[in-house]
Amino acid sequence: MGVTRLKRKERKNRAIANNKQSAIKDLIKKPVIKNVDIEAIKKEFAEKAKSEKKA
């Protein structure tokens, strides 16, 4: 007896697997968003500006 291959289902399963893999790869490529203290950064810029004006 010959084996019937379900070609459409096979293509669909491969597409689903490839989409999952590509989604994981996309997530790995993106840098992690960290909590940033904006006020501290503003203070650093203000201090640098003051020191540059003095020099």
Score class of each variant (00 low, 15 high):
M1D: 07
M1H: 06
M1S: 13
G2F: 13
G2A: 06
G2Y: 03
G2N: 07
V3L: 09
V3E: 10
V3K: 09
R5E: 11
R5S: 06
L6I: 04
L6G: 10
K7Q: 13
K7Y: 09
K7H: 15
R8G: 03
R8S: 07
R8F: 04
R8W: 04
K9A: 14
K9S: 08
K9Y: 03
E10W: 04
R11I: 04
K12W: 07
K12R: 15
K12H: 08
K12V: 15
N13A: 13
N13D: 13
N13H: 06
R14P: 00
R14M: 15
A15N: 12
A15R: 05
A15H: 05
I16Y: 03
A17M: 08
A17C: 02
A17F: 04
N18Q: 11
N18G: 01
N18R: 15
N19Y: 05
N19G: 11
N19H: 06
K20A: 07
K20Y: 12
K20M: 10
K20W: 04
K20P: 00
Q21T: 06
Q21P: 00
Q21V: 08
Q21D: 13
A23F: 05
A23Y: 05
A23C: 01
A23L: 09
A23D: 05
I24N: 04
K25L: 09
K25D: 10
K25V: 02
K25I: 02
D26W: 01
D26Q: 10
L27Q: 13
L27R: 15
I28V: 12
K29F: 00
K29C: 02
K29M: 08
K29Y: 04
K29E: 08
K30W: 01
K30F: 02
K30E: 13
K30T: 13
P31K: 08
P31S: 07
P31I: 02
V32T: 14
V32S: 09
V32F: 04
V32Y: 03
V32R: 13
V32I: 15
I33K: 13
I33A: 03
K34E: 14
K34S: 10
K34I: 12
K34T: 08
K34F: 08
K34M: 10
K34Q: 15
N35K: 05
N35Q: 06
V36T: 08
V36S: 04
V36Y: 03
V36K: 10
D37L: 01
I38Y: 05
I38T: 11
I38W: 04
I38R: 08
I38P: 00
E39S: 12
E39H: 04
E39V: 05
E39T: 10
E39C: 00
A40F: 03
A40Q: 06
A40V: 01
A40P: 01
I41D: 02
I41R: 02
K42P: 00
K42G: 00
K42F: 07
K43G: 01
K43C: 01
K43M: 05
E44M: 09
E44F: 05
E44W: 05
E44Q: 06
E44R: 10
E44K: 15
F45W: 10
A46H: 07
E47M: 14
K48G: 07
K48S: 09
K48Y: 11
A49R: 12
A49Q: 03
A49L: 06
A49N: 06
A49M: 05
A49C: 02
K50L: 11
S51R: 12
E52V: 07
E52N: 09
K53S: 08
K53T: 05
K53E: 11
K54S: 07
K54Q: 10
K54V: 09
K54M: 10
A55K: 14
A55N: 14
A55D: 06
